[in-house]
Simulated assay, not measured.
Amino acid sequence: MTYSKEWINILNLVNDFCSEKKVVWFRGHSHSEFQLHSGLFRKEYDSLETYIHLEALSYRKFLNLGHLHHTERDWNLLYLMQHHGVRTRLLDWSESFTTALFFARSSWRTEQDACFWMLVPTSLNKLTRGKTQLLVPYEGPTYEEYLFSGEGARFSENSIALYPVRNSNRMISQLGVFTMQGNSMLPLDKEYNGFLVQKGDLVKINLPLSVLTDVDNFLLQAGVTDYTMFPDLDGLARQVNRIQGYWPRLTLKMNPSID
């Protein structure tokens, strides 16, 4: 079976975008209507102060109650919080297209379209910080200073592209990077009145249901599985439970030549 023309056109769009841009990040959504909101700002509260209070409380609880499971704090702890499901102001991106495609596919329902986004992170930082460099957080104020310093360091109004320390196997496998949402509380594509979208440095590509089989075959041929994305026992269990697509025949015989 060959790839559909629709899927080939999508791959060409990705190739053209990456050919024109020096640095590209990807993010997959299992529903095309999902907004580019971090977990923290997906909650609906009336004031920014409520979000910041929740953010500080989440950090303290994860730090104090999780001390037997980690030795991290500050930015490195924030990355762990994000990858273990805490609602933070970080939004997951990847340097890998296949990673984004995997996450778009992982919860894709047959009654809806999925999508993925492509971002030029240096263009975002040019708008927010006046510099095209990616922000390396440990070279500046600590995360705790942002949370607790009062009149000291303050979160910016708009998102910033971060290049984090990859302090977990999942981040390494997924080539994980982040944008950190600002205090404007707007989704990334709405920031700066949609300038990044208008400029073509933030692009959304829909994945219609008609390419679902193409996506499955593409991920299979690329060797992308639950276990490669989550290289731990949880990821292995997901892969074992996912009985779909090509499943190689396994034998329990020590010597296949003996019947």
Rank of each mutant, 00 (worst) to 15 (best):
D74W: 01
R87D: 15
Q181M: 09
E139Y: 05
V165H: 03
Q198F: 04
V120E: 14
I172M: 12
V211Y: 00
L209P: 00
I205M: 03
I205E: 05
S32K: 02
G223Q: 00
R60P: 02
H31Y: 09
L54R: 09
M185C: 15
Y192G: 04
L209I: 11
D189I: 02
Q174D: 05
H69Y: 12
L127S: 13
I243P: 01
G223A: 10
L188R: 02
H53M: 10
D234R: 09
K199P: 01
R87F: 14
D113T: 11
P141L: 10
W108C: 09
L77H: 03
G66I: 08
Y3S: 15
I52C: 04
Y3P: 11
T142F: 03
R109H: 11
E33T: 07
F102D: 14
A153L: 01
L186Y: 02
F102A: 14
Q174C: 12
N125K: 06
Q35L: 08
L207Y: 07
R249L: 15
P256M: 03
L78E: 08
Y143R: 05
C115L: 11
T132G: 10
L80V: 08
I160S: 11
I160T: 14
I205N: 08
G130I: 05
S32V: 07
R129L: 15
L202I: 02
S19V: 07
V86F: 03
F148M: 10
G85Q: 06
L57G: 15
G235K: 00
L220W: 02
K199N: 09
F103E: 06
N217Y: 07
S123A: 15
M171C: 09
L57H: 14
D214N: 04
D46N: 03
N169M: 13
I10L: 13
S19F: 03
L135M: 11
Q82Y: 04
R105S: 13
Q198P: 00
H67K: 07
K253F: 12
E49D: 13
G245L: 12
G150T: 06
R73L: 04
S159D: 13
M229F: 02
S19G: 15
N217P: 05
S159F: 10
Y138Q: 15
Q198V: 09
E44M: 09
T142V: 04
H70L: 14
V240Q: 06
V215Q: 08
A237C: 13
V211Q: 03
S96K: 06
I172W: 03
H70Q: 14
N206Q: 14
L233G: 10
L90M: 09
T128Q: 00
N158H: 07
E95L: 12
L127T: 11
P121M: 08
Y45A: 14
P141W: 02
T2W: 00
G39R: 02
S96P: 05
K21Q: 13
H31M: 10
F102N: 12
W25Q: 04
K126E: 13
G152D: 00
A100T: 15
L252V: 13
K126L: 13
H83V: 09
S210I: 07
W117G: 06
S156C: 07
T251Q: 11
M254L: 15
S173Y: 00
L68S: 13
E72D: 09
L212H: 13
L202W: 02
Y143V: 14
N9Q: 14
V197D: 01
L48W: 02
G152R: 00
T50G: 11
L186Q: 10
L68Q: 10
M118R: 04
L236M: 07
Q133I: 15
F195E: 13
T213G: 10
T128W: 01
Q244Y: 02
M171V: 04
